[in-house]
């Protein structure tokens, strides 16, 4: 099942002579349960593409179908609601709130969901436990190592059971040991919980963990390859299993979220389709 579909998407900055074409007629489809790595040099258009996929920006031309619904025409607030209900983000620089405990950071997206305090606490603690930080819940980012901070960020991205997680160079600011930790965590989540992940990375060995690698150059996708995982052919064949079934956790998460979906209610129809 296609979770995300970009159809002939372009993004143009500036006008007339100063026009820059950051994305030039991209077509890209991501299935539910897929783990996609995005590569490309800076200026290749991969960040622009990620911003559009993450509904932080909208395309100049083309259509963006999210669960079959065109979300490219949504306004600012509707995109915010879409992010709130369906998307999770992991950033290179962690982007945790300073002077705020790990627990409260993880609770933050739930606050915008309007959950009660006890419920927020329960979900956040469960998620912190899942990333192995149950003994660090009251530490602030300044009191945590880089790897721990990124794990808090992952817990924050996961706590809303999003349909998809966008990870923008999640290990870019970490040393190799912590990087390994984070990657193990992400690929484990993908494998065990069937979570859809789109990850930007510069390092081929990280990209190799993904089901698929998408390479950008000059605003176009120059290669899409379904390389078999170097870790073993078995992984590849198994990944088809969870991704097929991943409709289950993804779907259940979605139906729970869509209950509170306001302006973009057509999206619910899309999801059910």
């Amino acid at each position: 099942m296609k979770l995300i579909e970009l159809l002939d998407v372009s993004k143009v900055y500036g006008r007339g002579g100063a026009e820059t074409r950051a994305l030039d007629g991209i077509d890209l489809a991501i299935d539910a349960g897929e783990f996609v790595a995005v590569m490309g040099t800076s200026g290749s258009g991969k960040s622009t593409c990620m911003n559009i996929l993450g509904c932080l920006d909208k395309p100049t031309h083309g259509r963006y179908l999210f669960r079959g619904v065109d979300v490219s025409k949504l306004d600012r607030d509707e995109r915010a609601l879409l992010r709130r209900r369906h998307l999770g983000f992991i950033f290179q620089s962690f982007n945790l709130l300073a002077r705020t405990s790990a627990l409260e950071n993880v609770e933050l997206p739930l606050v915008y969901r309007g959950l009660r305090k006890a419920e927020r606490r329960r979900l956040a603690l469960a998620q912190l436990d899942a990333v192995g930080l149950s003994d660090r819940v009251h530490h602030t980012p300044a009191e945590l190592s880089g790897g721990q901070q990124q794990r808090v960020a992952i817990a924050r991205a996961l706590v809303t059971s999003p349909s998809i997680i966008f990870a923008d160079e999640p290990t870019g600011n970490l040393d190799s040991r912590n990087s390994q930790e984070i990657l193990t965590l992400l690929s484990g989540l993908h494998r065990e919980r069937g979570i859809t992940i789109v990850m930007v990375t510069h390092e081929p060995e990280l990209a190799a963990l993904a089901d698929r690698v998408v390479v950008f150059r000059d605003g176009r996708i120059v290669s899409e390859s379904n390389e078999p995982e170097p870790s073993g052919g078995g992984g590849s064949s198994r990944s088809a299993g969870p991704s097929g079934e991943s409709g289950q956790p993804g779907e259940s998460g979605h139906s729970r979220l869509s209950g509170s979906w306001g302006p973009g209610s057509e999206l619910r129809g899309g999801g059910a389709r």
Binding site: G54, L56, R76, D77, A80, L81, L82, R83, R84, R85, L87, F89, N95, L96, L97, A98, L108, P109, Y112, R156
Partner: peptide, 14 residues
């Protein structure tokens, strides 16, 4: 930055 994080996590402008 804090505002950016909030917006990314789904806070609306209002």
């Amino acid at each position: 930055r804090e505002i950016g994080i909030r917006l990314a996590l789904g806070a609306r402008g209002r």
